[in-house]
Amino acid sequence: MAEKRKVNPWLKAALEFGPLLVFFVVFTRFKDTQFAIGGTDYSGFVVATALFIPLMVVTTAILWRLTGRLAPMQIATLVLVVVFGGLSVWFNDPHFFKMKPTLIYLIFAALLSFGLLRGKPWLQLVMDEAIPMRPEGWVILTKRLIGLFVALALANEVIWRTMSDQAWVNFKTFGLTILMLGFFLAQGPLFSRYGLPKDGD
């Protein structure tokens, strides 16, 4: 098993969210611009996606180099970004990239559900070091997170199918992050009730 190394949290946050912010800035700047490349016209959305993919690969590789490991969520996200982002660029169609959050949230919900059916809250394997809790706490948190992932997948579908590109980009860049942060902040009572003291506490 690869050794997990500590990294400056600000640097880690910059590497994790930097590509998304670059995508937001490039799209916002060039959303009404058409780029003629190789005889084909590409929208600002597709160009921003084309820049986002290699940047995501590079920052993920740097994270792996610095920390010595990658979480399953990071690996799955990178794979889906490359596949669906690549399809959007290849077919010059933003719809593929917009579908990516739906698929990744449904995959996570399915995996967590499968773990619960087997009596193993897999979320504990990923987060137990950061949030030590009793087993019943992990079961409750897993069920709540499954519900959140399904709700986010549905929200993404509604937004990209019914609203503008700018609305979807705003939702992906800021909305999803705020909702996830708000969800975990709202779990304070759960962590207090079922939490276990860390070593040294």
Rank of each mutant, 00 (worst) to 15 (best):
I37M: 11
F184D: 04
F45S: 03
Y42K: 12
K198R: 15
L152P: 03
L51G: 10
L148K: 01
K31S: 08
V58W: 10
L148C: 09
G200M: 10
V7N: 06
W122L: 13
K31E: 06
V26D: 08
I104R: 00
G68Q: 08
L179Q: 00
S113K: 11
L116C: 10
R29H: 12
L176Q: 14
V46P: 01
T67M: 09
F96Y: 15
W64I: 03
P121S: 13
M127K: 11
L179W: 01
I146Q: 08
V26F: 11
R29A: 15
A61G: 12
G115F: 01
L125N: 10
F30W: 15
E157A: 06
M56Q: 08
T49C: 05
A110N: 09
E129S: 09
F114M: 10
F114Q: 04
K100L: 10
T102W: 08
I146K: 05
G115T: 03
G195A: 09
D93T: 11
I53Y: 06
V22T: 13
P121H: 13
I62F: 06
G147T: 08
K120T: 11
W90P: 05
W64H: 03
T49Q: 01
S43Q: 09
G18W: 07
T142G: 04
L21S: 00
F52D: 05
E3D: 13
V47H: 11
M127C: 03
R193P: 01
A2M: 08
A36G: 02
L123F: 03
Q124A: 14
I53F: 02
Y42H: 14
F35D: 04
G18E: 06
W90T: 13
T49L: 05
M127P: 01
I140L: 11
M180F: 07
P189L: 04
A153S: 12
K172V: 09
V158R: 02
V83L: 15
T60H: 14
W168H: 10
G195M: 06
S43T: 15
D128Q: 10
A109C: 07
L152C: 07
I140G: 07
F149A: 09
F96D: 05
K198H: 14
F35C: 04
T162M: 11
V81K: 02
V150C: 11
S88D: 04
N170D: 15
Q187E: 14
T59P: 00
V22S: 10
A76D: 05
L21D: 07
L145D: 04
L141Y: 07
M127G: 05
K98C: 02
H95W: 14
G119Q: 02
S192E: 14
T173I: 07
G175Q: 06
V79R: 10
T40C: 03
S113T: 15
P132I: 07
A76F: 10
F30M: 06
S113R: 12
R5E: 10
V79H: 00
Q34K: 07
T162H: 10
D199F: 02
R29V: 15
M180L: 12
L123V: 09
V169E: 00
N156M: 06
L111M: 13
G18P: 04
G182C: 08
T49F: 05
W138S: 01
L145K: 00
Q187V: 07
L111F: 12
F17I: 13
I146M: 09
S88E: 00
V46A: 05
V7W: 05
F84C: 04
